[in-house]
Design a protein around this nucleic acid. Sequence first.
DNA 1: TTGTAGGCGTTATCAT
DNA 2: ATGATAACGCCTACAA
Lengths: 340, 340
Amino acid sequence: MNKRVTLADVAAHAGVSRATASLVVRDAGSLSESTRERVRSSMQALGYVYHRGAASLRASQTKTVGLILPDPGYTFMGEFTIGLESVLGDRGLLLLTANAFEDPARQDRLLQAMTENQVDGLVVIPALGTSLAFAERLERTGIPTVVATRAEAADLSTYVGIDNVLGGRLAGEHLLWHGARSFVYLGGLAGLRPRVDRLAGLKKALAAVRGARLVAERTGPALGRWAREAAAELFRTEPLPDAIVCHNDSVAFGVYRALRDVAPEAVDRMRVVSFDDVDEAALWEPPISSVAANGREVGQQTAAALLRLMDAPDADREVVLLRPELVARRSCGCAGPAGG
Amino acid sequence: MNKRVTLADVAAHAGVSRATASLVVRDAGSLSESTRERVRSSMQALGYVYHRGAASLRASQTKTVGLILPDPGYTFMGEFTIGLESVLGDRGLLLLTANAFEDPARQDRLLQAMTENQVDGLVVIPALGTSLAFAERLERTGIPTVVATRAEAADLSTYVGIDNVLGGRLAGEHLLWHGARSFVYLGGLAGLRPRVDRLAGLKKALAAVRGARLVAERTGPALGRWAREAAAELFRTEPLPDAIVCHNDSVAFGVYRALRDVAPEAVDRMRVVSFDDVDEAALWEPPISSVAANGREVGQQTAAALLRLMDAPDADREVVLLRPELVARRSCGCAGPAGG
DNA sequence: TTGTAGGCGTTATCAT
DNA sequence: ATGATAACGCCTACAA
């Protein structure tokens, strides 16, 4: 049970002052190379470990960025994290990650925890049902914050996300071009901002064509197993639409399972477009046409925006809207190569 | 630019000492309810935020657990995180998460960062190519550590994972029962422990049946897009095997895409079993038979083991092996209901 | 039940 | 180029 080795021990061992030793660990100040070397070897000899907590207390910055996610289960979140962390990591920042599990109350507690931990910056993808009050609390913390992907609490903060209205419009226009007239929108939790936006874009596209209409929509968790049930129910009770717009790829997977189970003859003529374009979309039978979200790039842009904010806290609030792109494969009716 | 509100300010405002105020924020000691109330309302009035960093410095525990993951892109990691965090969260522990991107050098740096941050506990799913030296460094940190899922660096630490040898055997035996004799194992990075184990289990099963043999194996990232290429290449150059064992579900998805692209007539008679059993497996056409990993449960068990370790640091090293289960659907040759 | 005093390990400031 | 000293905000004793 040996006592912790502190900078003071290192300094004593090297025959210098604590201040000097401190400059060495931080690669700061102007010291002779010989002194630096001497201190370094003392650190080695004693097995010194830098105590970032103590440094943070004194320097009042933790080199830590908080990340509040709604649910790590979605593929998008993993991709987003990769993009975020790769950029932040290059600046020596570590991520304090927490998941709200789509529960605003839990999200409140997590925000509290993040402030108590004095994170230098904060990234939030708001949970479903996030209120305006949360946006205000976020603002009041005084921590440089970027809201990403879901625009729920973004009215006061910098926001980075995808232009979902455009995404919905792209999906709609393409399906209309294929001749579809009756549409169903499937999945996405009620009130979720990206869902509202995509639907708005879709409706805008439909409004431009006579006879085109949205015949049904269903809200729910954008998961394959939910979509399978919801779609099967729909197919049993309503006439089949010409096209189905799915809130994400998982929903599309569930839709195809349901089609094969209850209306196999319709598999080939149903037109489907979904969102996100995860890897599996290209592998599906038929290959799924999808509006690509590119979570990794959203993550990178978010990191970049956060760094800008941390460097210039008084800068204006930014809004970064990334343009989505429709990757057309077979499910929409295109006859492209098997796995475009 | 107001100065930070400290406990001393709160104490002054409430007319008590710093110590008393400290007891209030921690819900500790025995104080009169009236005092507690008074201090609390002072906190409210002044907008006090607890400074966990300062507390950590003094109390030498950070209420933070480090999590080092190899790659957040795999679905399994998301599930694992959910399980881990839900248990740890109940104890007021926060996760400091970092991804090594399958790079041992980066993993070393992350471990360094975790120690500098004085995490109270550490969970590691080792990156590919993790050396024994890493296991030793892990041990030397003195931090309660649990290695999960991949047994690479687990020789010295507590380990929680799935019995992959058994998993491989289950897959093999079931496929043999269906009459398969020639096998291919596809995916998983070279040297990866779960891959080695699954393959060992599979071979053990094959050894028990005359004429059964592994005709090929391919190593690579267990991703659908990789699997698609690898499988297509295989199908073009070698005679088709009776069965393919896939390192995870994504590989199976890629295999089916390749089959449809280059050998569509074989889609129905090929027998496929994979690992993990993610949601999409049940939705695929055909529904994929998979050895269920249940990342969420692995996460929970890992958290439980870590808490045990943190409560009793001198306890013996534990090894928790979870039994996998084969979920038989259609891809293995079973004729069950569409999406069993 | 409440108050006093000292220190956790580092860094900032001012000297030398 | 290096050293002395005082914070940073809180917690742990122990005393009252």
